[in-house]
Nucleic acid binder design. Structure first.
Length: 279
DNA sequence: ACGGATGTTCGCGC
DNA sequence: CGCGCGAACATCCG
């Protein structure tokens, strides 16, 4: 589920659920989502009775603050999501944590694979946590500066795509959007990160912005109340909304390019690319 | 039924 | 010490 656009969406959803609300009670069974048992107990103990203040996002991390100086760090991992249910309703599958609110709703943190994480801190220390402090510019929050991007990429010999997925270089890009951004920029994923020209870096900046923007618009379309019905056999309604991600073997979607998309593994992740137009 | 999946962290080797 | 790579984590889906 989550790269930057999905986390952004999840954060606004959660903001809507929590705005103006108090947490009556917090519960959570033991699970890997909490680093350890002390962390799970802190979740239960510290959130009881707290009033929600704000939710912020840094890359794929969500930072929540409550009154009394309570802060919560959440990461959705690979399969995490927040879902709202009526008080008294059966918990959805894989609910790893529950927030009982003062409006008759329960917020469930669902996460089948449990790669996600929830941790309680003080609100003051959230931004200085090592994992947050290490995060690079966020394309949505801060924008991408081509010069800064070029400098960050010039400092590593890793393959371009591996460097792009490093949150210290650019926040929030994962396998999908790194793949999409490179195709849009006509840059080969295996190329050494320190081989980019300033012009390449500018193209990459535009590729990143475009793939993030496209995904956010896509989410808006999918969640719009008036979203049109999808018809299974309509080729315009492909279930994969991305241009090249997971499309190895298909023709390159670039106008005028006769290439066929291939895939290779970089940094342990499958990468689709066009060998003809990505240099 | 087997293989792979949108993320992060840790340990190992160079 | 810094870098880079691969494995590990737990479950679902095609």
């Amino acid at each position: 589920m989550p790269e930057l656009p999905e986390v952004e969406h999840a954060a606004s959803l959660l903001r809507g659920f929590l705005a103006g609300r108090h947490i009556v009670r917090a519960e959570a069974p033991r699970s890997r989502v909490f680093r350890d048992e002390a962390s799970r107990r802190a979740f239960v103990a510290k959130l009881r009775g707290r009033r929600f203040e704000v939710i912020d996002r840094r890359g794929k991390y969500m930072l929540l603050t409550f009154d009394g100086g309570v802060g919560l760090l959440a990461h959705l991992g690979m399969t995490g999501s927040f879902e709202r249910a009526r008080e008294g309703a059966a918990a959805p599958p894989h609910s790893r944590a529950q927030l009982h609110l003062d409006d008759g709703h329960v917020i469930h943190y669902r996460d089948p694979r449990m790669f996600g994480r929830i941790a309680i801190h003080t609100s003051a220390e959230l931004l200085s946590l090592p994992e947050i402090a290490a995060i690079g510019p966020d394309p949505l929050r801060d924008g991408v500066d081509a010069k800064v991007l070029h400098a960050a990429l010039s400092a590593t010999k890793r393959p371009l795509k591996v460097a792009l997925m490093d949150g210290a270089v650019i926040a929030g890009l994962g396998n999908i959007h790194a793949t999409e951004a490179l195709w849009r920029a006509k840059l080969h994923p295996a190329r050494r990160a320190d081989s980019l020209s300033r012009t390449d870096a500018s193209a990459l900046k535009r590729g990143i912005d475009a793939s993030i923007t496209f995904a956010i618009e896509q989410i808006a379309r999918e969640t719009a109340p008036e979203a049109p019905l999808r018809y299974v056999n309509d080729p315009q309604n492909d279930e994969n909304p991305f241009l090249v991600y997971d499309r190895a073997g298909e023709p390159c979607p670039r106008r005028g390019c006769k290439g066929v998309l291939e895939s290779m593994v970089l940094g342990g992740r499958t990468s689709a690319f066009c060998p003809t137009c990505q240099k």
